[in-house]
Amino acid sequence: MSGGAAAGGVVGKGGPKSFLLGVLAWVVGLVFFFPVFWMVVNGFKTEEEAAADPSLIFDPTMEQYDEVTAETTGLLGFGEAFSNSLWAVAISTFFVMLMAVPAAYALSIRPVAKWRDVLFFFISTKFLPIVAAILPLWIIARDLDLLNTRLLLIVLYTAMNLPLAIWMLRSFFSEVPRELIEAAQIDGASIRGQITSVILPIVAPGLAATALLCVIFAWNEYFLAVQLNNAGGETVPIWVTGNVSTRGNFLAKLSAASTLATLPVVLAGWIAQKRMIRGLAMGAIK
C-alpha cells in the first residue's frame, strides 16, 4: 500500500502535491472499502474471534461458510434462496430488456409525437413510493394467490427496473448516428432489422450496463421480497437477515452469509465498472 503510494509520485506529474493527492486517493479508497474488508475477514473467523477485540491475526476457518450453507429442515436454505433470487433477477431483467429496447427506440430514434411526456411518465413512476403500492399489491396478490411466489417478484422487479432501463437505453439510442439508421432504411431494413443489425451492436456496452444495473437493483431488493414473499420464494436478502439471531454470537456467521450474498453482484460490478461509468452518465446525459 505505501509502496503503491510512493510509486504514485513517480508515475504522476511529479511534485509533492501530486504525490500527496495520490496518497489521499488511496486513503479514501481504503476507508470506503474497509467495512467490506472487515465483513469478509470476519467471515473467516470463529464466533469467539469475531466477538473479541478486532484483530487481523487469526486462523482462517471455513466453519461459518459450512454452517450457513448447510440445509436445515424448516429453515430457508442457502441453495433455495439463491435459486429463487437467480430466477427472479434473471427473468425480470430479461423482460425489462425485452420491453425497454423497443420502448427506447420509440422514444428516441423514431419517436412518438409526445415522447417527452411518455418518458416523464415512466420516470414519474419511480417517484411514486413503493409503499404506496404495497398495500393494494398485497391484497391483489393475495386474491390472485400470488403471495409467496417467484412470479410475483418477477412482475414487480420488472416494473421496478423498467423506467430506469428505458431512460438509460433511450440515451444510448440517441447517440446512434442518425445517418446509420437512415442508411439502414434506404438499404431496406425493417424496424426489427434496424434494431437487431444496426442499433443493438452499437449500443451493446450500454445494453450491458443497463442490464447490470437492473440485476444489481433486483438482486439487492429486500422490501418487496420480505413483504410479499416471506413464506416461499424468499430471496437472498431474506436469507441473510435470517442469520441474525437474538441469542448467542452471530457476527462471523452473518459475515460469511453477507459475503456470499454480495459476491455475485460485486464481482459483476467490478468486471463491468468501466461500462457502468459510460452507462450511468455518458448515456444518461446526451
Binding site: 448516428p177 445517418e179 446509420l180 437512415e182 442508411a183 432504411q185 434506404i186 451492436p201
Partner: peptide
C-alpha cells in the same frame, strides 16, 4: 425509403 430503389452515400459514410 425502402420502396424507392435508391442508394445513398452519406457525408460521414454511415458505415455500420
Amino acid at each position: 425509403p425502402q420502396d424507392r430503389d435508391i442508394a445513398m452515400v452519406f457525408q460521414n459514410y454511415a458505415l455500420y
